[in-house]
Design a protein around this nucleic acid. Structure first.
Length: 254
DNA sequence: ATGGCTCGTGTAACGAGA
């Protein structure tokens, strides 16, 4: 089965891209971030017509997450029960015996901002909750837009980005703590092309010059690592007209 | 060089994203 994550930067704008991408790339579970839609405006009918079950949790203007699945979805949890967070950034569900967590980690804006403190506190609570989920669910996948580039090789210009939000040591340490629970970055299970990124700035020819960051991740528990035979980033939809600034990451689980 | 582009909101700029 194929499990994918994609920050679509407005599902209202990107629904045609999602539909086209799913047609061309048979995917069993797709986790979406930044739907930017209240639940009453979520386009569930179009998605169901394409043969998917779907659950979603959104709000006005910002954030919002969804899980699309060919197989039925059960035991849905919205948000981290350990954090009182008005922002809709987390959706967890059980599909085909796997526990799937779809997460949109806060951006953080800049290391000296209030939003950075919110990001760090959010990640701390996320770690506590995911520890519980890992203990409860041997087959666990924690996927989404982490807004953290794990290592310098995940950054197009590490010198220019040193200490900045998305690459700061505190953020990287928070991500390593998640891995220390027993999760593995599926992308690094395999040989990958150099300069592989999942996000490129809209400005300044970011994509054409491959000035990107790898900040979208699929983290797998040991039982799912055993099943994982591939993990790739699909740059194709970033080349389409009016693209999201992120592009899908896909893991194959046998 | 602090901009560069794209969203939603709401119908003009502005905040946010990364």
């Amino acid at each position: 089965m194929k499990l994918a994550t994609w920050n679509v930067n407005s599902l209202n704008v990107r629904l045609p891209h999602v539909m086209q991408w799913l047609e061309e790339n048979p995917t069993d579970v797709l986790c979406i971030q930044e739907t930017k839609l209240t639940d009453d405006k979520f386009p569930f009918a179009q998605i169901e017509a394409a043969g998917y079950h779907v659950v979603f949790s959104g709000q006005k203007t910002y954030n919002g997450v969804a899980i699309l699945s060919k197989l039925p979805i059960s035991d849905v949890v919205k948000n981290n029960p350990l954090l009182d967070d008005p922002q809709q950034r987390i959706l967890a569900a059980t599909i085909d015996g796997m526990r799937i967590v779809c997460a949109y980690v806060p951006n953080g804006q800049s290391v000296d901002s209030e939003k950075y403190l919110y990001k760090m506190g959010w990640l701390d609570a996320f770690h506590s909750w995911i520890s519980d989920e890992a203990a409860r669910h041997p087959q666990l996948a924690v996927v989404g837009d982490y807004n953290i580039a794990p290592e310098d090789r995940d950054v197009h210009d590490p010198a220019a980005w040193e200490g900045m939000v998305h690459v700061s040591e505190r953020e990287r340490a928070a991500l390593r703590r998640l891995l220390d629970i027993g999760l593995t970055d599926a992308f690094r299970l395999f040989d990958q092309p150099e300069k592989s990124y999942s996000w490129w700035d809209y400005r300044g020819l970011g994509f054409r010059l491959n000035k990107g960051l790898r900040i979208d991740h699929i983290l797998l528990s040991p039982a799912l690592v055993q099943r994982c035979s591939a993990c790739v980033i699909d740059r194709t939809p970033r080349k389409w007209e009016q693209p999201s600034d992120h592009t899908p990451v896909i893991a194959t689980l046998d």
